[in-house]
Nucleic acid binder design. Structure first.
Lengths: 198, 198
DNA sequence: CCATTAATTGAACGAGTGTTGAATTAGAAT
DNA sequence: ATTCTAATTCAACACTCGTTCAATTAATGG
């Protein structure tokens, strides 16, 4: 067992990216405060000071680790726009339930939780979550009042994920099956899509 | 300006309650981690060690400071049950928007946020929020599948408050007026109340 | 009145935090 | 080759936090 000596490593290094990945997952998992620079460094297999060396501070590392929306998520609006409206609602609710249920795909929602008590981080997240994900869906679908609809859709999504991830509704109500969730979620989304906002 | 000397004060003291109040508001405002015992003590006008003396630890103080649902909230189900269903939906959405908008009434939702990264605190909050507030409403209204409806209602409420408190949707979309919010919220709640869950 | 207990402060401890500086090694540039 | 810069570790600093301990003052019970 050789301990790592100081100095630059041979060849090219992906330490920077590994720190970024570790930070992203840990922030999403434990929130900002509970995640320490030392934890991030350990998961990245690196010295804590290296993270600071690369990003300047924990604060800036957090900002840099905010997830950009996946290409898949950015492509979704155009795909959905091709479908008839009822189909679009069903597809969206499927996608939402998926992104809420699957543990790795919930990066953005984990980040929302991480940012929830940090006013500085909120604007950036709002831009990503609503501005780049929800709003494009609404405009691409050609709906009236897209901003309002985007916000209301975000209400459903965040509420769903909050209850799912954080309050873990499944543990106490296992008989609330996904089918029932999906059914009502679909209707709710359809409502957001179709309601005439005077 | 006389500085406070050690020793018991004359007469009866409400220090314990003041610590509890300070803790409740600060936890709801800043979350668990960002709230320090020293902050609580300062707001309560008291020495930090007194808070520990009374409650044993910050952990136990947090548990003790969890808000019980107000008597008003507990009385709501019976009041709503008297109304026709459409009226009930409107009344509920009003109540929800109110509780989400007013800064002091959002204690429970602030606590949910505070507890969000602390698994130990989650069960207690779920019991209060869903079990004692949402579920009674549904059963009192005599609806089928009250558990599912309670959870779905909670989805709307938490999502609404999350966006309002945390992402502060108003700052970037000031033109999203409360009327539009209220209109769609009412419809969503009505949907939760009336949809036939197969 | 005396002993006990409750309430309160002040000072300090120990653990953990983000961050810095020096030292070391490797690639890049001249 | 030599110089410069980038990457890396290690040790340490300053700070904050939760908590503890001793001291002090007031109420309470016998």
């Amino acid at each position: 067992m050789t301990i790592a000596r100081a100095g630059r490593r041979k060849g090219t290094s992906d330490s920077r990216q590994q720190i970024l990945d570790a930070a992203r997952s840990l922030f999403a998992e434990h929130g900002y405060q509970r995640t320490t620079v030392r934890m991030i460094a350990e998961r990245a297999g690196v010295d804590p000071s290296l993270a600071i060396y690369f990003f300047g501070s924990k604060e800036q590392l957090f900002a840099a680790s905010m997830p950009a929306p996946s290409e898949e998520a950015l492509a979704a609006p155009k795909l959905l726009a091709a479908l008839p409206r009822a189909e679009a609602a069903r597809a969206m609710s499927h996608r939402i339930l998926e992104s809420v249920t699957s543990p790795e795909a919930s990066n953005i929602l984990g980040m929302m939780r991480a940012a929830s008590s940090r006013p500085e981080a909120v604007a950036q997240l709002r831009e990503v979550f609503i501005g780049r994900m929800m709003l494009p869906m609404m405009t691409e679908l050609g709906l009236s009042r897209p901003k309002e609809r985007a916000v209301l859709l975000a209400v459903v999504v965040t509420g769903m994920s909050f209850l799912h991830e954080i309050l873990d509704i499944r543990q106490e109500w296992p008989d609330l099956e996904e089918n029932a969730q999906l059914a009502l979620l679909t209707q709710t989304i359809e409502l957001v899509l179709t309601t005439d906002l005077e």
